[in-house]
Design a protein around this nucleic acid. Structure first.
Lengths: 121, 121
DNA sequence: CTGGGAGTTAGAGCGCGCTCTAAGTCAAGC
DNA sequence: GCTTGACTTAGAGCGCGCTCTAACTCCCAG
């Protein structure tokens, strides 16, 4: 798989894929073909897909790097990995709650404007 | 009210309050005392509190500026204000949905590790 | 043999939202 | 008078996550 294909598949750009690699997010740097081009495996693509999900949920690059390091270190980091994800999970839930609460104010304001608009017309 | 008091109350720093003012987020620049210091009114503090809620819900500074402009322009912008907030509301809801969906993957992974840890011990 | 297209690198640049610095003014307390 | 502390300004700097540029190599089609 070429970098362009992985980009296509994951929605990231080739630039970003190289950036992620530099940032230490890959389990191992993808091997190169004779021409020096990266050749990604299916497993790489799956891993990158997972990264995009973690990223989309607001996990910082630094935490993703820590996670990648744990995965690289193998089976005896299951507990640490689980803890890392649980911490992230708590962050996400807190964020959702925060958004929900802020949404109330927005809704309230919208309501207010609705009534004012009604009152005028 | 001094800038420090408003900072205290809103959780922003004095630096940020001045930045918001420069960014055009205030309804009007707070008047100054004889010493040239800003003197905020209760209404200013309320407005800033609203800004922090909008900000916390992810509204960009630029959108907050547009909203402030509408408020400054007075009563005949109710519809536009409502539309702006409704657009923001849709953004927030979409974000919440996105987070919820990403959370599923995280939960799934946590589950996986739980079972692996169990299996090993 | 000549383009064109896809990849490579190191490193610069950008947009956002602050955050801080430097240099200055002013008022109150010792 | 002198220090301390709260404020003022213009503008620089920062952290994050990309995003892009320049210069290069390689390969293939015409």
């Amino acid at each position: 798989m070429t970098i362009a294909q992985v980009a296509q598949r994951t929605g990231l750009t080739a630039h970003t894929l190289r950036y992620y690699e530099r940032a230490g997010l890959m389990l191992e740097p993808p091997p190169r073909g004779d021409n020096g081009h990266r050749r990604y495996t299916e497993r790489d693509a799956d891993w990158i897909a997972l990264l995009t999900r973690l990223r989309a949920s607001g996990m910082p690059i630094a935490a993703m790097r820590r996670y990648a390091e744990l995965v690289r270190r193998g089976r005896d980091t299951y507990v640490a990995r689980k803890e890392l994800l649980e911490a992230h999970r708590a962050d996400v839930i807190a964020k959702i709650e925060q958004l929900r609460s802020d949404l109330e104010i927005v809704d309230h304001k919208i309501d207010l404007y609705s009534r004012r608009i009604m009152g005028e017309e």
